[in-house]
Design a protein around this nucleic acid. Sequence first.
DNA 1: AAAATCGACAACCGCTCGTCG
DNA 2: GCGACGAGCGGTTGTCGATTT
Length: 319
Amino acid sequence: MRKPTSSTATAEAAAAKSTPCCVKVGLKRGPWTPEEDELLANYIKKEGEGRWRTLPKKAGLLRCGKSCRLRWMNYLRPSVKRGQIAPDEEDLILRLHRLLGNRWSLIAGRIPGRTDNEIKNYWNTHLSKKLISQGIDPRTHKPLNPQSSDQPKPSSSKANHLQESLKEPIKTASSGLEETTSGSTAHPIISNKENEYFQNNSNAHLDDQYHTDHFIASRGYTSLLNYDGSFGMDLRGNQRLVNGEAEDINSGTEDVFSFLNSLINEEAFQQHQIFNEPNVNSAPASSDPLFPIAATAFGLTTVWESTLTPSALDQNESK
DNA sequence: AAAATCGACAACCGCTCGTCG
DNA sequence: GCGACGAGCGGTTGTCGATTT
């Protein structure tokens, strides 16, 4: 992988700082061979993940534990999905990145089969360039030069839709990249209630990364919701999001779990009438005006699609 | 055909956090 | 409270195949 010279220099520099892992003399570096992959995969099949520092020795590998972990997590794990990023995955990445920033592991956690490294690479090689070419700052998701009147306009309808998707807080649940060439506008998954909330509550402004993070973290969505509606905990993600306000997360955990259970039980979920039922005791999070935004952002698209089709939304709005 | 350039992505690095003694 | 250690994260780099000159 790396050139021997620079590698040596780096290793020496690192050794001077006495980094415990990966500096051991005689350890192999660079691309993994099929034989190494097999050794690692077989060992983990037998012994399970973890104990990465001692794993290489036990597995008969001349690699550092860190390297083994990375290889397993990003490549060998059975759940890792290979192949091109699908348009709906791309759209989800964009949405999640707008909300979470470069928190690749959090983003990856909501896209089944994709690793943080893969998403990070995809962002750096594809999406950030795409956004820049459209005059959007990939860091802030805002126009690079809002004052400029000669802002380059997206040429394709897909690109145009992408830009719109990034400007607006909420669009369709399924994909912001859906073509709208038929002339019909996409139905936003946001009710008058939510619009009102955005107008009246500055904390809810999605362009403000801090408030967005705070909102997400304070309700535990970030750490709890997975793409497929299942949930798990990522305390580190929580902690990074809230900047010392972890108590906000924990205080609502039970409510969130209760709500998530209702999500998993789709039948129950459908009975909640999310937008219009004022007091949903069994699912407090769903009555939060901002709930649809978080849910959409975190990829609960299948749930939304099954319950909140445009026609269903129209019915809700007209009530 | 050879050299130069580019793009994609696997892998590495430094750092932080949580846990445990 | 402190240090060591394990684990994980985001940023960066190096390699390699494809494309262009």
